[in-house]
Design a protein around this nucleic acid. Sequence first.
DNA 1: AAACAGACCAACCGCAACTAT
DNA 2: GATAGTTGCGGTTGGTCTGTT
Length: 432
Amino acid sequence: MEKNAGAVPTSPDEEKRAAAAAEEEEAAPVALKKGPWTAAEDAMLMEHVRRHGEGNWNAVQKMSGLLRCGKSCRLRWTNHLRPNLKKGSFSPDEEVLIDQLHAQLGNKWARMAAHLPGRTDNEIKNYWNTRTKRRQRAGLPVYPPEVQLQLALAKRCRYDDLSPLSETTLDSGGSSAAGYTSARPAPLDLARQLAITNQTVQFLSPPPPFSAPSSPWTAKPFARNAHYFHQFAARSSPVSPSTPDLALGYGVRDQSRLPPSPGPRVELPSNQFVQAPPPPSSAATGGGGGGLPECHQNATASLEKMLRELHEVIKVDPPPAQLVPANNGDAEQQPVLQEGHDGRENKPDGELKDDIDTLFDLMIPQYNQSEPAPPAPAPNHSGSISQQSSDDQDLSNVDLGVDLPAAGAVSSPDQEWSLDGFCQWSNVSRIC
DNA sequence: AAACAGACCAACCGCAACTAT
DNA sequence: GATAGTTGCGGTTGGTCTGTT
């Protein structure tokens, strides 16, 4: 089987002999080797590529005598031998990017890999499947809240391709966004939106019962979402670079394999994303601290704009959109829309809150709490996202992390989208 | 120390798209 | 246009490592 192992043709003559031998063997069926590659085989393959370049993989066996099928050679080269491959654990930045890319692309590993230099589709796929499995077990949504919000925004773009949001996304271009032909925002823009929405959602407060007519999900109580966002607002973002235990909660891999974090995590690769406006304070990244007045104004304006656009999308009358400015200087009094703890007692302007409902529902579709949790189906090995065969994934079908195989776990009685739900994001490592 | 479970990784398989003839 | 060959992609499987009981 491994008669050629270690016999790397080093001269044209030897190569010809190897090719001749391979041709001879063609007469009889050649038993191609399978299984792990040996160092000798690697050397043969590298030598072949060095001489002949990539491609024409089926010729490798003939020309070099390597008893591997072309497919196997290509895979080995692509995933292990080609230069500039980045080995080792994914950096936190890469993990965030993978989340965002997956939220947009679904299981398009190769396209995701194109955004992660030095990473292979196989690597990303393995990482995602492993991490998703872990999150499912923990009863967590597949995507962190920020990415869910991005999904909601991206989903909205589907309904309004002419909206400023989608305009900017379409021509956001750049090398990283090249190849995107749909109206969906390219990852670059998702990242930019993330920077914006990080500020925005801090000022959201629990909405009243959902009433948006166009939600792809059934109407559900928002109490748990409200709790969730209270926490979301009051605490640092789960993916906030300034969150000390970020590595514990998000993008968690085997912590023992993570390199020691040298310092505050950078949420997004600076070389790939448009710089977000510098946060006026730690609050901008959800640091749980005090929002400055400018921050509040920006966030309020952003939210208003978002809601107005949403109104257009769902074809309802424009809302009054009178967001009460948050109590300046007091970060602990961020909620803009006043209401009781159960989110239903003090009803502010109905339509505006309905809009917020819509946003909430887009972000965090809930199970009907009254229904018993269905038994969690066997984990989809390919990850929690139902496979989208189309490259232009229909975001209306994008799971936001709840109606997934793991969703059963989410809806388990002791796993609520409340304070606990949020805490789970920050404590995955403890759960796992 | 042994057994077990989970995480990680490498590789294979099947299918679809693409290209050359 | 039909066909065969090639390439790329996504899903799946199995082995190994590591941590826990």
